[in-house]
């Protein structure tokens, strides 16, 4: 009779049952996940490096990030080529002054169009650099940018350009926002 009463009580306490079953299911999933990750060949480390420098790095782990101040300095010395990795429509609405448009999502379409212009600009930049003897410590750069701190378009584009043989490729993280918020020269669509 006592067992009957206890069991009926248990049946009538669904909320209380849930309270102890939830942690058990979580513990089960946790154990399986940790074990599986430990055993699999493509495991990920338990603690990853998600700093901006680590996220926007090349295949050797070297960071590609360039600061706004450095980008501004290169811009003022005509030693930087900016490449906008955002979609064409966003580029047309507004972009860093003299930036080229190479939307990452359509890179196959636009790269052949852009490549000769980019090469010409790189050689012009090399000439500026060699003429400018007093600033030998400043190196020229190709700087890709998009918009938003988590935007990956500029990173993908930078890696692609490096693969295509371009040197000194850098990324300005959240480039469009930080550049125009700093009041630096931009070209905007006039409506």
């Amino acid at each position: 009779m006592k067992v009957k009463n206890i069991s009926k009580k248990l049946y009538n306490k669904p909320f209380r049952d849930t309270l102890w079953q939830v942690p058990l299911i979580i513990l089960l999933a946790f154990t399986i996940s940790i074990t599986t990750n430990y055993l699999r060949s493509d495991k990920i480390p338990l603690i990853g490096n998600w700093s901006v420098d680590a996220r926007f790095s090349d295949s050797n782990g070297k960071t590609l990030v360039i600061s706004l101040e450095k980008a501004k300095e290169l811009f003022e010395n005509n030693l930087a080529i900016f490449i906008d990795a955002r979609p064409k429509e966003q580029y047309e609405q507004g972009h860093i002054q003299d930036a080229l448009s190479l939307p990452w999502q359509e890179v196959d379409t636009y790269f052949m169009e852009i490549a000769p212009i980019l090469e010409e600009r790189v050689s012009n930049m090399e000439r500026v650099k060699s003429d400018n003897g007093e600033n030998k410590n400043i190196s020229n750069a190709i700087i890709t940018y998009c918009d938003g701190e988590s935007c990956e378009l500029s990173h993908e584009l930078a890696l692609f350009l490096k693969e295509m043989g371009f040197n000194n490729v850098h990324i300005m993280v959240n480039g469009w926002t930080v550049w125009h918020e700093a009041g630096l020269p931009v070209s905007v669509e006039i409506k």
């Binding site: 299911i25 399986i32 940790i34």
Partner: peptide, 14 residues
Amino acid sequence: HWIVNPMAIFLPWI
């Protein structure tokens, strides 16, 4: 940052 990978491992399994 320190919790990103543990979440990526655990969330799909839960």
